[in-house]
Amino acid sequence: MKKVKVLILRTAGTNCDLETQNAFELCGASVERLHINFLVNNKNKILDYDILAFPGGFSYGDDIASGKILANEIKNKLGSQVKKFALSSRPIIGICNGFQVLVKMGLLPESELCDQKSTLSYNDSNKFECRWVYLKTEQKSSCIWTKNLPSVINLPVAHSEGKFIPKDKELLSKLNKGNQVVFRYSTKDGKEPKYPLCPNGSAENIAGICNKKGNIFGLMPHPERYIFPLQHPRRESSGSEYGWGKIIFQNAVNAVK
């Protein structure tokens, strides 16, 4: 069996790279965390990897808007390589700040176009929100990252700009019809939540989406923070010695094995 190679892209202000690396390594992958400056100087290096991850944090301080400066930088300096990677069906994940980057560079929801069609805007509460939430998993979703998940799972969120807004209604229905919605904030029983269970006021409580093919996945919650039961507020497990977050990383690693 080949060793799956994961690239975690980091820059000034990236800060969930270490735990993301741990999550992938726990799934048997070998992981490198590389600075964007290095990748800009070694443009084709990205293509050596099987999985690409944009971790959480505050890239460039989230100055101007969350993920904006990094999204522009990638688009302008590494755009064609990242697009090539995406179109080759290799898995890409953007977590929190990474999701903001994917959306703002237009890799989600329509990776072919690389044009920003939706955004992640300020939470309705106008506050940073760090809390655990219930996520309803869309069972029909085409996302390769979220196979084998039960109908509702817990993950923590921690963001102030997580309100998903699609450009228009057509896009929203396209996402629904194309099974591109992966996670929605919900109540314990998978029902429509109110604040704070929906922490940001997202359109249709959307917490995570994927592209049509299902290889590119972006989400506001942090699966890398729920690898072990110990990390859960009540220490719940996924029925194994791991937490549900680990299953997400495992799915991608298994998919490229």
């Binding site: 800060n15 969930c16 940073f128 929100e129 760090c130 990390q231």
Partner: peptide, 12 residues
């Protein structure tokens, strides 16, 4: 809740 008290995933 305005502080990210779980970053690094180590706050058990």
């Amino acid at each position: 809740r305005q502080y990210d008290h779980e970053v690094l995933g180590q706050t058990i």
